[in-house]
Amino acid sequence: MNEDERNKNRMSNKVVNYVGFIDAPLNAKDLYPYNSKVGGSPVWMAQPPAKYSHIKCTECSGDMAFLMQLYAPLDHLPQFERSYYLFVCHKCNATRQGWKLIKSMERPRQGYNEYEEEEEEYDEDEEEEEEVQEKVVQNDTKNENGDDDDDWGVEDGDDWGLSGKTDNNNNNNNIDELLMKRDKMLKEEQAKKKEQKNNKQSTSTSSTSTTNTSSTETSPLEGFVTPSDPSNQYKECYVTIEEEVIKQQKMHGGGKGGKHGYVDDHSEMEEWSGESYEYVKDRAFSKFIKRINHYPEQVIRYGFGGEPLCMSQAGNQMFDVKTAYACKRCGKNKVFEFQVVSTIITQISHNKDVSSLDFSNLFALTCPNHCYDVGSDVHNDVIYVEELLLVEKSI
């Protein structure tokens, strides 16, 4: 994923829903740490703590498989890049203990600053060229209208070696000379900036190699992959993210209004409080199917601070107002951030013959304050926090 795609997929702090889809196979040499993907090995932002190099299930002590990573930056938290890493135990995946969700955060890398500088330099060059072009057009217009004033500081053409009256041919020659001079100045300025940039990069590279002569040279935008990673069990593919757009469905007749629009709103669950369990159960499943059918192949739903989409009434009860999941550090109730939909089960391919995953939805909850312990959660300048993952059982 390039920088433009990265910025395009940057997730808003507003409650906007996004959906993710499994895409093309991932290039094994792609070590970009801010990809969203399924399978393969996790691409950590930096070498993680030893406990994450070989993750074991807390229930059966078996090796856990890496299922996916999700790049999840937030506009209201620009000081951090954020990614999630999800691991599963095939024997215990029907319970919460059979899953592990790790959130990592780091400060934006120098590579992005260099990219932004290049963009700023490009914009400055564009602005300079537009200003010159505008002056040329103005000058050409004035000459056509018989105006002797010259925006280029030329009075009566004398400064250009011209005297007396000028005809149209002389005016055209003046414009040609101005254009040639403009082009020459732009080329000289661009060459100068390029030389300064090359000198700066040469100095930076020399300084880096002097201070880190024993280190392995890596791209500033490369992550870390654990060698001989036992969690590498699924086929590796990119995940693409896009905003969820729900089209209003028109229905005719019924009610005083005549036409009614179907609005898919989680709050409608409140209207079901007086209904029987079986009726509510059917309504919950119906709502889930209607929403999923807008994007049948979605495997991820994202909406920081939004509402989860449960398949069953039992799932809805996990998010009852009486049920709160507090952060152990600050005490604030955790908020919904994303869910993994069971549609992923049939879209992923395991390297070995193992038992299939068994769940309806996985819900990731995080602290709204993004808090962490400076002493125990930071390793190699990256923050690692294990977040809460709720499992909605299959129905």
Rank of each mutant, 00 (worst) to 15 (best):
I395K: 05
T226V: 15
N173Q: 14
S286F: 15
K322W: 13
Y122K: 04
K259W: 09
R109I: 04
D282W: 09
S312K: 06
F304T: 01
K103G: 06
S356E: 06
D156P: 00
R301H: 12
K193G: 02
V43T: 12
K259N: 10
C367I: 01
E177W: 14
I289D: 09
S36G: 05
N143W: 15
F304I: 00
A324T: 14
S36F: 03
G111S: 13
F338Q: 00
E131F: 12
P230D: 04
S349V: 11
S215M: 07
C327A: 02
V137Y: 12
G315A: 04
S41M: 04
D150L: 02
H76A: 14
R10E: 09
K142E: 07
N35F: 05
K328G: 15
V245P: 03
E188Q: 10
S286H: 15
K352T: 12
S209A: 12
L26G: 05
L179W: 10
Y52V: 01
T208V: 01
F359E: 01
T213G: 13
N198K: 12
Y85A: 02
N171D: 14
A324M: 06
E195C: 05
Y325V: 01
K256W: 13
E3Y: 15
E297H: 13
P33M: 00
Y32P: 02
A65L: 02
L309Y: 08
N198C: 02
E307W: 14
R96L: 06
N232V: 06
R10P: 02
M68C: 15
S104N: 09
K328T: 11
E117I: 08
K259Y: 13
G315W: 01
A324S: 13
R6K: 11
S286M: 13
L186H: 12
G20S: 04
P42N: 00
S342F: 09
L67F: 14
L178R: 11
V136K: 00
D183A: 15
E275V: 02
D373V: 05
R301K: 13
K165V: 10
A28I: 10
K256V: 13
K328I: 05
Y384T: 00
L221T: 06
E386K: 03
L179N: 15
W272Y: 06
V239H: 00
Q97S: 14
Q248G: 15
V335H: 03
E130H: 10
E114T: 10
M45L: 08
R283W: 07
N333Y: 07
W160G: 00
G305N: 04
H350G: 01
L365Q: 01
K235F: 08
S206N: 07
E124V: 12
E297P: 04
Y277C: 00
N35H: 08
V15E: 12
S356K: 10
T210D: 03
I300N: 01
N380W: 03
L74C: 14
I300G: 03
F66C: 03
N93C: 15
Y277I: 00
E114A: 10
N143T: 09
C330I: 02
V43I: 15
Y384F: 12
I175P: 03
V263R: 07
R283Q: 11
E189F: 10
E119P: 01
A326P: 02
Q201R: 09
G39K: 03
N361H: 01
Q110I: 14
T58K: 10
